[in-house]
């Protein structure tokens, strides 16, 4: 009991010393100004990373490549070692995989006409990519920049290029769905929603960038780097991941369903009945 108390006191003292030291020492010489840091988080003018030595790209693209590689390896491992052992009554891990596939696939809607498996597969890929891509920033993987510093790999969709790619691709899928499901009418219906790629792109970009900026801001100052990141960095990021995944997959599912539905044929107009003359009406009565 005494030992536990001693341990707790040491731990608290250590925390107090570290906090005091961090505040007392202050920022290092040449520390990046917060305005520059925020600007660079949006525009990536300085913090660019080399892509296999071929070209300099935004850190978001590197994050996307890392996520892609990791996901494909995990998927391959699951395909080789887990899926062949699937049983009619699922185990825990099988249940988790089936639930993930089922949940995202359900966003495609069970009554979606046309190629339902196409939009189902797309929504599954998009959902997994957005969810894990958003959570990826929690790992805080550091990579060297071409300018000589280091940068933390952000969520890929906090890069405007990734958000535009995702928004436009989703719109393209919706247009394709309209063409496959309802032909020319479907394409027209999809084209009517011309603002969709912009809204989808900037919704993703805005949501994820705001999260990134807030996190960056919190970590920029030593004082706010304690306790607060637990809420801001972890809980908000997790909420973000769920909400953004849900929003984009739901929008794609709804619009896809809407444009791929064949229009109902208009009912033929009934011929107007001749009005009975007064004499005829009397006879009829």
């Amino acid at each position: 009991m005494k030992q536990r108390k001693k341990g707790m006191i040491v731990w608290l003292v250590l925390i107090a010393v570290l906090v005091a030291a961090t505040i007392a020492i202050g920022p290092a010489a040449g520390h990046e100004d917060v305005r520059i840091a925020m600007r660079d988080a949006v525009l990536h003018e300085e913090g660019r990373v080399s892509l296999f030595g071929i070209m300099d790209v935004n850190p978001g693209l590197i994050a996307a490549v890392v996520i892609n590689a990791t996901l494909l390896v995990i998927a391959a491992l699951i395909r080789i070692f887990v899926i062949p052992k699937f049983t009619i009554v699922p185990g825990k891990f099988q249940l988790v995989i089936e639930q993930i596939v089922g949940l995202l696939d359900a966003q495609a809607g069970s009554k979606t006409p046309g190629k339902r498996s196409f939009v189902g597969a797309y929504i599954f890929a998009v959902g997994v990519y957005i969810f894990l891509g958003t959570l990826f920033e929690l790992f805080g993987i550091q990579v060297p920049t071409t300018a000589g510093g280091t940068v933390t790999l952000p969520a890929p969709l906090s890069d405007i290029n990734a958000a535009i790619c995702m928004g436009c691709l989703s719109y393209l899928v919706i247009v394709l769905g309209g063409a496959m499901g309802a032909g020319f009418h479907g394409v027209l219906a999809a084209l009517k929603e011309f603002s969709l790629p912009i809204s989808m792109s900037f919704r993703l970009f805005g949501a994820l960038l705001s999260g990134l900026l807030v996190t960056d801001l919190v970590y920029h100052y030593a004082v706010t780097s304690y306790v607060i990141p637990v809420a801001v960095g972890v809980i908000f990021t997790m909420l973000h991941a769920v909400v953004q995944t849900y929003v984009l997959t739901m929008l794609v599912g709804i619009y896809y369903h809407e444009v791929s539905e064949k229009p109902e044929p208009k009912p033929k107009k009934e011929k107007k009945q001749k009005k009975l003359r007064p004499r005829q009406s009397v006879q009829a009565n």
Binding site: N68, L72, A75
Partner: peptide, 9 residues
């Protein structure tokens, strides 16, 4: 990624 996930998972 989408192709890989489709065929593998």
């Amino acid at each position: 990624l989408a192709g890989g996930l489709y065929f593998l998972l």
